[in-house]
C-alpha cells in the first residue's frame, strides 16, 4: 500500500478526511520520532551515529529473513516482528561487547554491509514479498499494523520513562565517563541500559517505519537540537519535538506531493542536521 492519492486539487480538508487511513501510521511516526529524537541526543554525543543504521538494518534483515523462512521452509512460527526484534537486539549486544579486538566503527560498517546486502538478496528470492522488504529498508509503506503501533507506543513510553529517571546519571556519564566511574557511578550499567534502550527502540520502530527513516530520526533531529540549545535536557526535548514533526511531515508530504514517506522523513531529518551544521559554523 502506498500513498498515491494526491492530486493538485487536494487540500487540508481532504487530508483530514483521509486521517482515518493515516491516523495510525502518523501516530506511530510521531511517537517513534519523539523517542528516537530524544535518544538521538546521546547517540550523537557519544559519537555513535552509525550504530542506529547498523541496528536498524540488522532488524530489517531479521524481518526479511522471517518472510524468506516462511516461504522457503514454511516456518510460520517465525514472525517478522519477532525475527526483526531478535536481530536488532543481537546487533545491539554485538556492538556493546567490550572484549572484541575490533573497533566499533569497523564492526558497525561490517554489520551494515552484511545485513543490508543480505536483506536485498533475500528480497530477490521472495518476489511476492519484495515490496515488504523495500518497505522495511526504505520506509515506503503507509500501513502500520495495530500490533506495530502498540509495540511502538509501549517501547517509547518505557524508554522515555527510563531516560527521565536516569537522566542525571546519563548526563554525568556522557559528559565524562571516567570522572563518573571515579565518583562511583555505575557507568557500565548505565551504558548498557542506554544501548538496550537504543536497540529495543530501533528494533521495534524499524518494523513500523523502515530502516532508513529510523536511522534519520535518530540522528538528524538530535544534531539540530544540540546546535540550537545550551542545555542537554532542553536538547532532548527539542530533538523529541523535531523528531515527531519529521515523522508526521513525511505523511503530509506524501499526501500532498506524492512523495515516498520514508525518503521524505529522511530528507527532512537530513535538512535539520544541515541546519545544525550551519548553526555551528
Amino acid at each position: 500500500m502506498t500513498v498515491a492519492t494526491a492530486s493538485a486539487a487536494l487540500g487540508w480538508a481532504d487530508f483530514i478526511d483521509a486521517l482515518e487511513i493515516y491516523a495510525d501510521p502518523m501516530i506511530c511516526a510521531a511517537v517513534a520520532g519523539t523517542v528516537l529524537g530524544s535518544l538521538g541526543v546521546f547517540i550523537v554525543l557519544r559519537r555513535m551515529v552509525f550504530v542506529p543504521l547498523a541496528i536498524s538494518h540488522a532488524a530489517g534483515f531479521g524481518v526479511a529473513f522471517a518472510f524468506f523462512a516462511h516461504i522457503a521452509w514454511s516456518a510460520t512460527w517465525l514472525t517478522p516482528v519477532a525475527s526483526g526484534f531478535a536481530c536488532g537486539i543481537a546487533a545491539t549486544l554485538l556492538l556493546s561487547l567490550r572484549r572484541l579486538q575490533v573497533q566499533r566503527e569497523a564492526l558497525v560498517g561490517l554489520l551494515y554491509l552484511l545485513t543490508a546486502g543480505a536483506a536485498v538478496l533475500l528480497g530477490s528470492r521472495i518476489v511476492q514479498e519484495a515490496h515488504q522488504i523495500d518497505a522495511i529498508l526504505f520506509g515506503i509503506a503507509v500501513a502500520v499494523s495495530p500490533r506495530d503501533l502498540h509495540a511502538t507506543v509501549v517501547v517509547a513510553t518505557l524508554v522515555l520513562a527510563t531516560q527521565a529517571w536516569l537522566r542525571r546519571g546519563l548526563i554525568a556519564v556522557s559528559f565524562d565517563s571516567d570522572g563518573a566511574r571515579v565518583q562511583g557511578l555505575p557507568v557500565r550499567l548505565l551504558e548498557a541500559i542506554l544501548m538496550l534502550c537504543i536497540g529495543v527502540t530501533i528494533a521495534v520502530t524499524t518494523r513500523a517505519l523502515g530502516a532508513l527513516p529510523v536511522f534519520a530520526l535518530s540522528v538528524g533531529p538530535a544534531f539540530a537540537a544540540l546546535a540550537f540549545v545550551n542545555r542537554l535536557q532542553r536538547a532532548m526535548l527539542l530533538a523529541a519535538l523535531l523528531g515527531a514533526l519529521c515523522g508526521v511531515s513525511g505523511y503530509v508530504a506524501a499526501f500532498f506531493w506524492e512523495l515516498p514517506v520514508g525518503a521524505t522523513q529522511a530528507t527532512l531529518c537530513g535538512g535539520l542536521a544541515l541546519l545544525g551544521l550551519l548553526r555551528r559554523r
Binding site: L166, I171, F175, D176, D178, Q183, L185, P186, L232, A235
Partner: peptide, 30 residues
C-alpha cells in the same frame, strides 16, 4: 578526577552550572 581536556565533547550543550552539578553525583544519587 579531571581527565585530559581532549576527553570532553565540544558538542555537549552544558552550562558551567550543569558541569559542576555532575560533581554532586555519587553512586546511585542520580
Amino acid at each position: 578526577y579531571i581527565p585530559q581536556r581532549t576527553q570532553f565533547s565540544p558538542l555537549m550543550p552544558m552550562r558551567s552550572w550543569d558541569v559542576v552539578a555532575t560533581g554532586l553525583e555519587r553512586g546511585t544519587s542520580f
